[in-house]
Simulated scan of single mutants.
Amino acid sequence: MRTLAFYGSSLVSSYWNGAATYYRGILRALAGHGWDITFHEPDVWGRQEHRDMDPPPWARVNVWPGTPEGMLAAATRAAEADVVVVASGIGYEDDDALRAEVLANAAAGAVLIWWDVDAPATLAGMEGQPDHPLRRDLPKFDIVLTYGGGPPVVEAYRGIGARDCVPVYNALDPQTHHPVQPEPRFKADLGFLANRLPDREARVEEFFLRPAKRLPHRRFLLGGSGWEPSALPSNVHAIGHVGTSAHNAFNNSPRAVLNVARDSMAAIGFSPATRVFEAAGAGACLITDAWEGIEQFLQPDVEVLVARDGQDVAAHVEALSPQRAAAIGEAARRRILAAHTYDHRATDVTALLSRLMQKEPAA
């Protein structure tokens, strides 16, 4: 059996860890394709105190102390694997040092992968920094895989020294995200689920809070950490962190749910958030802010509603009947199941890794 060591933020906790659903989906599917997986995650940011999943049967989870000694011990285990993945945004106090140690400890001949789960932000952070540690490390990786970003991200990574770059988009895990019965606590005209982050706040103001102010007779539901209820319009009900086990009900209960891209992802395009696939898998009617490449995943006005600004969001909410919302949600679910599940992604990744293990060029 082929072995894979994955160094990431957390597999067992989604607390301040938006990549959790992505990791769970792609790694569960890869395990189904015959990979023996160990996920190495640091005990930082209170994530272990807020677990929403036990270690799964399809991957071993090594939780290492968030200390220099713990980091070094975890890095030595890179030698155990045929394929070694280091992800961005792990959250340890010195992720650059972790990446360097993992590279130094990997077995000779192992396939080495930098997996960037926030490529637009990573690339922006390296602008004007020719001595950035990631620029130093990139040539040591066999390939860069990214959460999204499309042609702009591929070209940017190749331009700064990556041997190759291939997007592995978010997708649906049908075992995890699927239709359920609505719950009264999540009833609303529009639901939005996202942690409060500096590079999304202005867009949340435009696409969620502005429509709420324009539609005082409508109920808006806000889930996620970091929001201050007293600063929100009176018709916005903030409920705090929503564990992944409740995401299906959160998606199924409002008439529609909203996706708002972070600034960097909206600017680059081709970066559908995990939330897009979660909502579609649950059969929710999704309203998303506009970004280039959405047609690659969902057809506007048929499988998703697209909004250029908050005024568009308000218009969608006012015009949306229960019947049309249900039809859009079901159409989205059929499209995603047919072409955008994590098994589709794992099939592609397994083929790519097999070529790399044989030292063949990527297709």
Rank of each mutant, 00 (worst) to 15 (best):
A315D: 13
A104G: 12
M53L: 15
R136G: 09
A5S: 14
W227Q: 01
F6C: 13
T38R: 13
F39W: 10
A256C: 09
G32Q: 12
D142Y: 13
A351T: 07
A188D: 05
P254H: 12
N62C: 13
L145R: 03
A256G: 10
L222N: 01
M126G: 11
H344A: 13
T21I: 15
V153D: 01
L356G: 06
D348N: 13
G32C: 05
P233T: 13
R203G: 10
R218L: 06
Y15I: 09
N170V: 00
L258V: 07
H178I: 00
C165I: 06
P216G: 11
M1F: 10
R200T: 12
W227T: 08
M53F: 14
H217I: 02
N62E: 14
A104R: 12
L337N: 14
V63C: 08
L11E: 12
T244H: 08
A75M: 09
G161E: 08
D309H: 04
D199Y: 12
L98C: 11
A326N: 09
V86N: 03
R28I: 01
A162D: 04
Q296K: 15
V166C: 00
V204L: 01
Y7Q: 04
V44H: 02
Q358E: 15
P254L: 04
H40Q: 11
L286M: 09
P211L: 07
S354P: 08
P272A: 08
A280S: 14
A256N: 00
E205S: 14
M71W: 05
T350Y: 05
P198T: 07
S354C: 14
L320Q: 06
